[in-house]
């Protein structure tokens, strides 16, 4: 780890002023659970850490006519223990439950949960986000890709988006407020995650001098049955092999509207629109849930060693759907 400057601004304006036009100029720091390990492993170098936890207003959850607003510095644990979230958005609780570490629950923040960098082992071992060799060939396709993307992998990016909150947020139609030097902009969660196409691009729509400040789940998503299902490599702390987040508008036993978003299968959360469309007008039972799972993995393009993830994604969708309509404890 190289030396860096540490700043703890008390206002957003001050914070934005401390960021630079280049990614290396400064890094936004909140929980630090991912950033510190990136710095320690020399994967990321930064001249300045800008701690945003001293900025008022970034750490509250509140409701308004537009929906539910979650500050970027709210911790996973605060979200996890929030009764309103628990009652309305069990998918978020499922995702938080997947973080099997009390320390991470207490430290990591909602903003970081969305902005954390991929776990790709080429990236973490210093080969860059796109993991290209000196001839521009993908190390991932030639190498061990058992944990890599099965969708959206036709370009140079083969890593998987690490966030389990991202798919949930997209399924719930959420959006994110991003503040920058020119003011605030709202971005749909579905548009926040992008697949980088060349070296230097990032996996989200942020500019180096912008900060995610708030997440909003629109009022329209209230009352949707929702759930997330993860297939995990082990019970303890780890990232899932695949996830599926679903949100269903039900009329009686029938699906009126569905959103299905796969996680950990592509460089960004991967909506399964055909499967969601197919579900409209159906009831959720074992058979239909399985068919939706089949539909969701249509068109998967697994690499040499990750074909098994297609099956895991299929099962994730099925089980998320069944969980969404099942009985739950609040």
């Amino acid at each position: 780890m190289d030396a860096f400057e540490y700043a703890k601004p008390s206002s957003l304006k001050e914070a934005l002023g401390l960021l630079g036009s280049d990614w290396d100029d400064a890094s936004v720091f909140a929980g630090g659970t991912d950033l510190i390990s990136l710095l320690k492993d020399d994967v990321v170098d930064t001249k300045r850490l800008v701690n945003i936890k001293g900025i008022a207003g970034l750490n509250r959850v509140h409701e308004s006519a537009e929906g539910v607003h979650i500050g970027a510095a709210v911790t996973v644990e605060e979200l996890f223990s929030n009764r309103m979230i628990r009652e309305q958005f069990p998918a978020i609780i499922d995702a938080a439950e997947g973080i099997r570490s009390p320390q991470l629950h207490n430290m990591s923040t909602v903003g970081g949960w969305l902005c954390q960098r991929p776990r790709c082992w080429y990236y973490r071992n210093g080969f860059g986000l796109l993991a290209l060799d000196k001839d521009g060939q993908s190390l991932v396709t030639q190498g061990d890709n058992r944990y890599h993307a099965i969708f959206g992998n036709s370009g140079p990016a083969k890593f998987i988006s690490p966030s389990s909150f991202g798919p949930v947020l997209i399924a719930l139609g959420g959006e994110m407020r991003i503040e920058g030097p020119k003011g605030a902009r709202d971005v749909a969660a579905a548009d926040f995650f992008v697949i980088p196409q060349k070296q230097g691009e990032r996996e989200h729509a942020l500019a180096p001098n912008e900060i995610v400040t708030e997440i909003t789940i629109p009022a329209a998503s209230r009352g949707m049955r929702n759930a997330l299902y993860e297939v995990r490599p082990k019970e303890g702390l780890d990232w899932p092999l695949t996830t599926a987040a679903v949100a269903l508008r039900m009329r009686g036993d029938t699906v009126e509207r569905a959103r299905i978003v796969l996680g950990h299968v592509a460089p960004k959360p991967w909506p399964a629109e055909d499967a969601a469309k197919w579900l409209v007008g159906k009831t959720i039972n074992e058979e239909n849930a399985a068919k939706a799972g089949d539909a969701a993995v249509q068109g998967a393009t697994p690499l040499s060693r990750n074909g098994y993830k297609v099956q895991l994604a299929r099962v994730s969708v099925k089980r998320a759907l069944l969980a969404a309509v099942g009985e739950r404890r609040v």
């Binding site: 099997r100 082992w121 071992n125 082990k234 303890g236 702390l237 780890d238």
Partner: peptide, 16 residues
């Protein structure tokens, strides 16, 4: 070695 850390080298945790 692709996984030289205790995150990616999966020793059992109390959970499992």
């Amino acid at each position: 070695l692709m996984n030289p850390s205790l995150l990616e080298y999966r020793i059992p945790a109390t959970k499992e």
